[in-house]
Design a protein around this nucleic acid. Structure first.
Lengths: 228, 228
DNA sequence: AAAAATAAATGATAAATGTCATAACTAGGA
DNA sequence: TCCTAGTTATGACATTTATCATTTATTTTT
């Protein structure tokens, strides 16, 4: 099995301040998992007894509303960690993490994490910063959901998806989402999302190649996202 | 000047795990402030070099959108603390905190807070839990803003305002908000908020006594908030 | 107390968005 | 390969929500 102290992921995520010894301890206790597309890594309301470190693959973090609709709160990819909020706050998981494609994930037991939190204040601070940043993003999202029309939110979301996932060798945003998932991200009906995507294509701002989306004019998209 | 170790606030908020000595240190360095209605305790984008402990009074936390609209993210009252997210994440303040009435506030310098974070892991954990809880609420808010109609959000907000501020001796929600502020909380136009409040009154679900709002039928309101 | 400014209320209308129906397309399994 | 189920696309229409105009009420200032 691979060794945490050699894992390139440790350079990218909140684990980067861990010492060699700490990483060795993680290695000894970690388990590697394959999560198939559509499966859940974590499920809303469940307890969790460790932290997930995403090696490879993409997933969506969602919340089921009282009206039965799914809201996508955040996208997560290789290098990100999951479950630390729940461990630190000692509360059940707040969101579903569902794989958008097959994923490789490491699970590190809670005990080892808490040990490092106690020993390594810098690690602890990194986790706090991570959660604080998420809170800051969430507040921005509340404001945008509440105040901006659907078209603006779609533009914003497309830019943000390219920011998060980058582009493939054909300059398309490097993630495959259904139209329904896009709608559940911006908070609108699937048909509305489809219609607005078609309009953006007609206006030459984006191109649609099946499920792949290519941004043709980033500036225009940015203007739309700000209401112009 | 009052002494932190005798302050009843210490029993309610995230400071409750501080030792007598720590509270004495806070006392020595703290400053007490009076914030008049309409003034800001903190301002979006500014740096902050301490933590505010609300003694008395209410304030709103807001965010200015790119389209110039104000979004109310959260309400804060006596016993709550402000500014800890910014201190911990070493980032500028993310929200404006504006007094809804005259307030009494204590300011505790950053140095003393960081000292306690280093010495007192339980205090540190309490702050993390506080931020985690805020994140959890924020995610719920995103989902509701994105998926629920204005009427449902208004019902939800009224219930939540009563939850936060309680009721006065006439059973009215114990906070004075303008219709515009209510609209900025649920994310709608002022006229829409007014209209929906009038409808709720006509249906006997609430009563409107000037700016004071009295909830007459909590169950109905709860049903509305869930889309029934 | 009167005047001025601000806030609340309401109607009329326009614009945005959701819902339903249906057709065209796509992808995965028999 | 064909077939089926799911997805995407589009039109027609209903509903929700925003905007503008105006009146009434309330608060603040003089």
């Amino acid at each position: 099995m691979s060794n945490c102290s050699h894992c390139i992921m440790k350079r990218f995520n909140a684990l980067k301040t861990l010492t060699h010894d700490e990483l060795e301890r993680f290695s000894d206790h970690k388990t590697s998992l394959i999560i198939k597309k559509g499966e859940n890594i974590m499920t809303e309301g469940n307890s969790i007894n460790g932290l997930y470190c995403i090696q490879d693959g993409k997933c969506k973090l969602t919340k089921l509303n009282t009206n039965g609709k799914e809201q996508i709160i955040k996208f997560v990819k290789g290098g990100d960690i999951l479950g630390h909020r729940s461990i630190l706050s000692e509360e059940p998981v707040g969101l579903n993490a569902t794989a958008l494609e097959d994923m490789r994930v490491c699970f590190i037991p809670k005990g080892d994490i808490l040990e490092s939190i106690k020993d390594n204040p810098q690690f602890s601070l990194n986790l706090i910063k991570n959660i604080s940043l998420q809170l800051s993003h969430a507040n921005t999202a509340i404001s945008q959901m509440a105040q901006k029309p659907v078209k603006d939110r779609l533009a914003e979301t497309l830019l943000s998806l390219e920011e998060i996932f980058g582009v493939d060798n054909e300059d398309c945003i490097d993630v495959i989402l259904t139209r329904e998932e896009i709608a559940n991200t911006i908070g609108t009906a699937t048909e509305s999302a489809i219609r607005l995507l078609s309009n953006l294509k007609k206006d030459g701002v984006i191109d649609l190649l099946g499920k792949k989306i290519k941004i043709l004019n980033k500036n225009t998209l940015k203007n739309i996202s700000e209401g112009y």
